[in-house]
């Protein structure tokens, strides 16, 4: 069964909103072309047999001991901050707060 994706303007806008990106109208065409390419590529493997992910073959998570190390100095924490005050990062006020 081929995968049906309606790559309409609403979907483009939804993806842009999710990703916090602004996609100008002229870029939407390029994005649609690429999405269609991937969708098409996947349509060719409808009959291809999937593999399955075998957890037993994956490596396992290694855990570290619970030792606290000295944190970064505050000046280092804030060194790359676009805006900071009183030791905190400052962003435009959250409206729904």
């Amino acid at each position: 069964m081929p995968i049906q994706v309606s790559l309409d303007r609403a979907l483009m806008q939804h993806l842009a909103d999710l990703a916090r990106l602004h996609v100008p109208t002229e870029r939407q065409a390029v994005l649609r072309q690429r999405l269609e390419c991937i969708v098409a590529a996947f349509s060719t493997l409808q009959d291809a047999e999937d593999g399955h992910v075998d957890a037993a073959k994956e490596r396992q998570l290694e855990l570290r001991d619970d030792l606290a190390t000295p944190p970064l100095p505050l000046t280092t924490v804030l060194a790359n901050a676009p805006q900071h005050a009183g030791g905190t990062f400052v962003v435009p006020r959250v409206i729904d707060a």
């Binding site: 916090r20 990106l21 790359n80 676009p82 990062f89 962003v91 435009p92 006020r93 959250v94 409206i95």
Partner: peptide, 20 residues
Amino acid sequence: DGVRFGQRREGHGRLEAMMT
């Protein structure tokens, strides 16, 4: 997202617009 590092562009005083 322009909060802790990176070149921020302001968005008319709105958080979401700043990030976008």
